[in-house]
């Protein structure tokens, strides 16, 4: 049991100050900007909630929000089951373990823009392996002009990039199951499915919650990879929330509107994070 001691605050203070500097001050600035028509800090007019009204009625926000949710949902629906399967297929001992761990981690170590570059190249029908194969098979695949192909490419790229994370999480959850459980299951002649359902899955619940949270959040803020791969196109087919926001903030330097957008974006994140956090602490308390 943890002891109650408010002196612990002194240990947390450095983190608090540091993160406050890079989170609270910017957040206040965003709030300030969002109620003004602002060109630079000296030329500004108070407009109240005008930007919010405009942004909330802006089809650009609606479209990219819908796209974003569909995208994040697809990412979870593919990566979580696939990650579990890969984790179950990991070798348990021997040289295979470190080798597959390192190979699995490779995509996570690639800088995000390089991820975009890799798929930009490999998807091209003239110089990329995958694009070339698909086109030789007679499929008319071109991610730069066909929205459907662009979507699939961005999605496959994300699966390539991040499924390893889910797999590694599940692997470490599986490793914490003592061997006696498996032995007992063998004596009972339990089926593979029963072993998975009653021994492995319960143990995976905690790590899966973390995996789902991280994957949802990170796919919800995805920017760099589609930016490099498709530039958000063709048209706006793969323009997700972060890119819409970045275009507004840096492309058009539309400070007030971008700030209102930022706050709405942040509120969505805040709600989802809170739901996950509550679910996680709820789990901890039950055990």
């Amino acid at each position: 049991m943890k002891t109650y001691n408010n002196k612990a605050w002194w240990l947390v203070l450095p983190v608090f100050v540091l993160v406050a500097f890079s989170a609270i001050i910017p957040m206040m600035t965003v709030v300030n900007y969002s109620v003004q028509d602002i060109f630079d800090p000296s030329t500004r007019y108070f407009v109240g909630t005008e930007w919010y009204r405009e942004i909330l009625a802006d089809p650009r926000l609606h479209d990219s929000l819908v796209r974003q949710f569909i995208y994040s949902f697809c990412v979870l629906a593919i990566e979580v089951p696939l990650g579990i399967i890969v984790a179950l297929s990991m070798p348990r001992r021997g040289l295979g373990v470190p080798v597959s761990l390192i190979l699995l981690s490779l995509p996570l170590l690639v800088p995000w823009n390089v991820v975009g570059t890799i798929w930009q190249i490999i998807g091209r029908e003239d110089i990329g392996l995958y694009g070339w194969i698909l086109n030789s098979l007679g499929l008319d695949y071109n991610y730069a002009s066909n929205p459907r192909d662009a979507w699939i490419t961005v999605l496959v790229m994300d699966v390539w990039h991040w499924t390893s994370l889910v797999a590694l999480l599940c692997y470490s959850g599986l490793r914490s199951i003592p061997d006696v459980y498996y032995q007992a299951a063998r004596i009972d002649r339990a089926s593979h499915w029963a072993v998975f359902r009653f021994i492995q899955l319960p143990k995976l619940k905690n790590v899966l919650l973390i995996a789902v949270m991280l994957r949802f959040m990170d796919s919800f803020m995805i920017y760099t990879e589609p930016f490099v791969l498709t530039g958000g196109g063709p048209g706006t087919a793969t323009t997700f929330l972060s890119q819409t926001l970045t275009q507004m903030a840096l492309g058009q330097f539309d400070l007030g509107r971008a700030s209102a957008f930022s706050l709405i974006y942040f509120l969505i994140i805040l709600l989802v994070t809170w739901v996950f956090y509550t679910a996680m602490t709820h789990n901890d308390n039950k055990e």
Binding site: V30, M217, F220, A249, S262
Partner: peptide, 18 residues
């Protein structure tokens, strides 16, 4: 929880004020 939200917040939100 507050620390967690900062891990989850999209960098794009902080772009302008940063």
């Amino acid at each position: 929880f507050w620390l967690l939200t900062n891990r989850m917040a999209p960098p794009a939100v902080f772009l302008l004020p940063f």
